Amino acid sequence: MSRTPRDPEGRMPLREHLVEIRKRVVRIAIGLLLGAILGWILYDPLLEALVDPLQAASEERGALIGLNFDGVATAIDIHFKVALFLSVIVSSPWWLYQVFAFVNPGLTRDERKYVYGFLAAAVPMFLSGAALAWYVLPYVVEVLNSFVPEGSSNLVGAQMYLSFVMRLILACGIAFLVPVFMVVLNLMGVVSARTWLAGWRWAVLISFVFAAMVTPTLDVMSMFGLAAPLCVLYFVATALCFWHDRRAARRRVAATE
């Protein structure tokens, strides 16, 4: 079968893009399925690690604090969710590659080199965000349980607690990808560094709102511990964009001389 011809810049037509996205989605699904199998096998130690902050709070306060499986199908439902959670983490290099392998054919030859740089930065950034959430999690749980009266027990709904923990970790991992997107869009000439700098107030506000949403406690330090790295990464990405814009400007001046 003959392939649909591309334009002079090497871009794919719309029909090939639709075929490409289907192929990438299928590959992502296969990667998640394989990761979920690993998560299913490692369910017991992973669940123990996720529940460990509750056990630490229980020992700290000398109270009964633990999970409550409050439904007939709750245990099996949580088993699936925890397996898929681990799958998203361990298969992150694979699905991030598929996302940008899909974008790659739609770029010009000069733009495609940025995809590989993005992938090299995106995976450690995603894992760093997840690791930061994991580090902050015990403090969040401790603050939440500090309001439990002495002598009382706190049996937390397993669905609610584990959904909160997994959402916190994945949300922080995805949030750490934003600076990488910023740099890539700048390298592609879509957004200038001045545009990113002009929106710094919104970036700081969104960072703190995001931190407040994923750490629903009255502990300011926990919220700041998540928001501060996001703000720092935003300004670091903006600085890299300025560095690239200045280099590009010098090249344009040299080309006209």
Score class of each variant (00 low, 15 high):
169 I>L: 07
87 S>Y: 00
35 G>R: 01
81 K>Q: 14
229 P>N: 10
108 T>V: 06
61 R>M: 10
227 A>P: 03
31 G>P: 06
61 R>F: 12
6 R>F: 06
218 L>Q: 13
212 A>E: 01
257 E>D: 08
202 W>H: 11
7 D>S: 14
2 S>I: 09
110 D>R: 12
8 P>R: 15
17 H>A: 04
68 N>K: 11
234 Y>K: 01
99 V>N: 02
99 V>S: 07
97 Y>N: 06
84 L>I: 08
15 R>Q: 13
51 V>L: 05
27 R>F: 06
139 Y>V: 10
128 S>I: 13
150 E>L: 02
36 A>D: 01
149 P>Q: 08
53 P>F: 00
92 S>I: 07
145 N>M: 13
33 L>N: 09
96 L>Q: 05
43 Y>H: 14
88 V>R: 06
151 G>T: 04
230 L>F: 03
218 L>A: 13
254 A>I: 12
107 L>P: 00
81 K>I: 05
221 M>L: 15
252 R>N: 12
51 V>D: 14
28 I>M: 15
69 F>M: 12
84 L>A: 13
183 V>L: 08
39 G>I: 07
243 W>E: 07
99 V>Y: 02
237 A>T: 01
199 G>S: 14
81 K>L: 12
151 G>I: 00
58 S>I: 11
92 S>Q: 05
187 L>N: 09
182 M>R: 11
48 E>W: 08
115 V>S: 02
190 V>A: 12
178 V>N: 08
173 G>R: 00
214 V>Y: 03
5 P>I: 08
104 N>L: 04
211 A>P: 00
95 W>D: 04
214 V>I: 15
126 F>P: 01
200 W>Q: 14
16 E>Y: 08
25 V>L: 15
128 S>H: 01
222 S>H: 09
249 A>E: 14
54 L>I: 14
234 Y>F: 13
72 V>A: 14
195 T>L: 03
152 S>K: 12
214 V>N: 03
32 L>V: 05
5 P>D: 15
2 S>P: 15
93 P>N: 09
70 D>Y: 02
81 K>Y: 10
7 D>V: 06
81 K>S: 14
214 V>G: 03
28 I>A: 13
117 G>W: 06
118 F>C: 00
43 Y>D: 08
74 T>Y: 01
127 L>I: 14
150 E>D: 12
255 A>G: 04
92 S>E: 01
89 I>P: 03
102 F>S: 00
227 A>F: 01
168 L>G: 00
162 L>H: 05
60 E>W: 08
231 C>K: 01
91 S>N: 02
185 L>C: 03
20 E>L: 12
195 T>S: 13
